[in-house]
Design a protein around this nucleic acid. Sequence first.
RNA 1: GCCACCUUAGCUCAGCUGGCUAGAGCAUCAGUUUUGUAAACUGAGGGUCAUCGGUUCGAAUCCGAUAGGUGGCUCCA
Length: 614
Amino acid sequence: MSDSSDQLYPMRHSLAHIMATAIRRLHEGTKFGVGPVVENGFYYDVLLPEGQLGEEDLAAIEGEMRHIITDNQPFERFELPVDQAIEWAQQNGQPFKVELLNDLKRSGTTVAKDLNADELGTIAAGDAAVENVSFYRNGEFEDLCRGPHVESTGKVGAFKLLRVSGAYWRGNEKNQQMQRVYGVAFASQEELDKYLAMLEEAKARDHRKLGQELDLFVVSDLVGSGLPLFTPRGTVLRDELANFSNSLRQAAGFQKVWTPHITKKDLYEASGHWAKFGDELFLVKSQETSDEFVMKPMNCPHHTRIYAAQPRSYRDLPLRYLETTTDYRDEKTGELGGLSRVRALTQDDSHVFCRQDQIEAEIDKLLSAADELYKTVGMDLRVRLSYRDDSDAYLGDQGLWQSAQEQLKNAVIKNSLNYFEQDGEAAFYGPKIDFMATDAIGREHQVATVQLDFVQPERFGLRYVAEDGSEQQPVMIHCALLGSIERFLSVYIEHTAGKFPVWVAPEQIRLLTVNQEEATLAFAEKVRAEAYKLGLRLTVDTMNESVGKKIRAAEIAKVPYAIVIGGKEIETEQVSPRVRKDLVEQEGERTLSVGEFLQTVADEAKSRATKTSL
RNA sequence: GCCACCUUAGCUCAGCUGGCUAGAGCAUCAGUUUUGUAAACUGAGGGUCAUCGGUUCGAAUCCGAUAGGUGGCUCCA
């Protein structure tokens, strides 16, 4: 999100040009697309005259860039009338620039509807009047560009090219695919190193890596891609998180419901989802009847059926349904990855059916539930108010949209949440509040969502009888606090680096026996039985290995508490738990009775503490 | 779906420009050891080098297709 007032902007912008200069030196006849500044760096979209760039080409490009930087070529600005600029682009064999310039000439902007905001400022070459178009020249390279640039190629700070990938021209998949070469850049080498270290840290906490190391989930080619299987440990995480999310809403008056995982496609034809998402639904054919089923991709249409099963009075509202359940979406294969994008996703889904005058109070409850959940997991929240834009991709009356968007905003302001507003991010049936959570290494992820919906009540003909006896249409509020549990887990595993607080830790306590003598095993068993009564997850390592090795194994498994059990413990009935470092606030020896220890851990789990109270 | 890259034992990885029976560490199993706060010792098992096809006297190595993965693009109820 750099803007041109940012001092890094000209630097990164110039690096994009230097990179283009280098690529053109190495590959005569390269066609250039756009070369904007993005978060942490820059890229340029290019099309080589023949062949493709691979990662191994990056070093050569970087080398050439360093030559250009050493040459310290000044950046010179000059202007051309737009028609001459188009001629320039044609003569230089730059069809993409020709297209941009033609747009510029026609509409005063090169911004296509499908270009994102980051690209917006960087390719718009001229001023609104569009008589003259500005160019920059460095050495032998000239490029259409609004600037600003640094003075000369020597003043660009520290950079590194990271990767090359495919990207569609102007972000439209119907267009030709170009190659996007990415680099990161900072004012100093230290900052660059810091950023690269952060990337390393992110790699070290990658949930796919930790998922395997900590034995949380597995994938199988026989089951299919995008269909992770959860181990006993991973299932504890899922259950604990889902239970927490559910309990927060049950406290706010939500009731659990259950719906089947397949349904006739008629349900989605009625809801409007078939028309919009039909090709992403899994089809299931009955061999007994002519019924065509689909795997449910969402739960709201089902919940409307429960609502509609009886006549409802204004007195019944709000009705609040809660269901943590798995939905199935046939995502394009290239979009699948780890747990963040799967084909079987579990939503902690809920729907409120309420009167218009109850919207704000209901949203208020959901916002405070979300707030508590994210406080507990230790992530900062900010919310995005996602509104519609002027396109026709949305269903429902314009006036209703207007009113809905205002009510969402009111509730957000009332909760004094940190928010921003964005057009074009709404669901097709209504505006929404999206929650963005910041993780331990500063990355922001979209998590929870609260969505208003005037469309489905209309489509399903939902009604209630008002005080005056008239029939009214209820409003639906969709809400998932975690979003998809799989996706949330991908974020949460990386946020915690696998060091889960006691309440979610798959294994809370591990006993390590010093030997395999009968008395030792009996004592361990006694502790295990007591822990079980307190609802604690405790395991016993009785392996015939050295204590050192067993400690190491417990450390690697990131178990919060490890306790060595031997003659000393048996005799005194006291234990000296070894506490995982991140849980400790004060260093020190801790020795206490078994009962006291277990009770303390049980209390920590119950209160969802993130530090030990030992 | 598109582009680039990747796929060698359960895991992490060696294996050079094609050439002995494809190796190591960890993990697993067996034996010895009965262990006190981050790795005891010895041995064994474990591979159709992702799959299928091609080039070659000869393929883990080169070429093609397929599957899976990674990073992006597009999409995201």
